[in-house]
Design a binder for these strands. Structure first.
Lengths: 171, 171
DNA sequence: CAACCTCCGTACGGTGCCGTATGGAACTGA
DNA sequence: TCAGTTCCATACGGCACCGTACGGAGGTTG
């Protein structure tokens, strides 16, 4: 529920009174479960970190080949922009003291996973790391673009191919 | 001044009372110059659009070759992350009704410029457009990453080369 | 049954912001 | 000089949120 609010209204929407009202309850109840708003937000963020970061990686791990995993990963952004809503909300609130550490952990975890992936494709460690950083930049940028200006992408299914080609090519 | 607040505190910081206080004035004064907060925000955003979007393009146009222009463009993000602060604030507030139209215009303008650039490099129109969308994604993503998790990039000067190679290679 | 703990509601004060009302000082022009 | 305009301050009410105080219903345990 708090996650839904986070996706829809950003970090600011993870607030005691609005959420209580949404649940048909009152603040009195909410403040029994959480000492304050910060604790509510922290719990929400950590729950997202726990459940959704690994979930994506597990989903991607279902693909048999490393190339297939990369394709799956970037395909996720393009096929369902709404799925990136929480990610974008986190980036939007990157300066919030409750958000920053979670964001940092998730970023490290994901870039680390990408390093593995590029290593499995055959890049040597240093190159794999560079590719991973680049690929994650593309991932973030596409999520932003899909969300903020979908018309520039609009049905551009070949963007996925372009992306994969540019990120994996050994020029 | 309002632009400074926008860069530092995001769209939420472009508020009547905080800005007035920052200027050593009072709201009474502020509400004489602007009918309401929305007008203040709109004026701030449009001023940014007017002065800074074209400014970047003009700066880049100073480079003699198209390749040099691309290099300059991506170099800007990596050499001074603070310069992207307003961009990121805009993206963070993309759902704000005052922000959305400005963001859309700026995105269109920039992607359009990139299409020109890739055309000048020698890509045929359709390919140039695809490259432009991809390149702008990388631009946005790098700005995000530099701002939210600088430690993963950290001194990685070769990222610029990687980026240019991946975006311009004719694989 | 009585004391107790759990969970929720009502009621209140505080803060930061929006927007309005109103008055006044300084300048400007007839 | 005096009326009008410009620019700013004080003061007020409103709203949305945070957080606290406190009371009460219902199950739990001695």
């Amino acid at each position: 529920m708090a996650l839904r609010a986070l996706a829809e209204g950003g970090v600011a929407a993870v607030a005691v009174e609005p959420l209580a009202a949404r649940l048909g309850a009152t603040k009195g109840s909410a403040y029994w479960h959480f000492p304050n708003r910060e604790a509510l937000l922290k719990a929400t963020l950590e729950r997202w970190e726990r459940e959704h970061t690994e979930a994506v990686i597990e989903l991607v791990e279902g693909e048999p080949t490393p190339d297939g995993r990369l394709r799956k990963l970037f395909g996720l952004v393009l096929e369902d922009p709404r799925a990136s809503a929480v990610e974008l909300a986190m980036l939007a609130a990157k300066d919030d003291p409750a958000v920053a550490p979670v964001l940092r952990r998730v970023t490290d975890r994901r870039v680390g996973y990408l390093v593995e992936l590029f290593g499995a494709i055959g890049f040597p460690p240093a190159a794999a790391r560079r590719r991973a950083v680049l690929a994650y930049s593309v991932y973030l940028g596409q999520a932003q673009l899909m969300s903020a200006a979908p018309h520039v992408v609009d049905g551009r299914r070949d963007l996925l191919e372009d992306t994969l080609a540019s990120v994996t090519s050994r020029a």
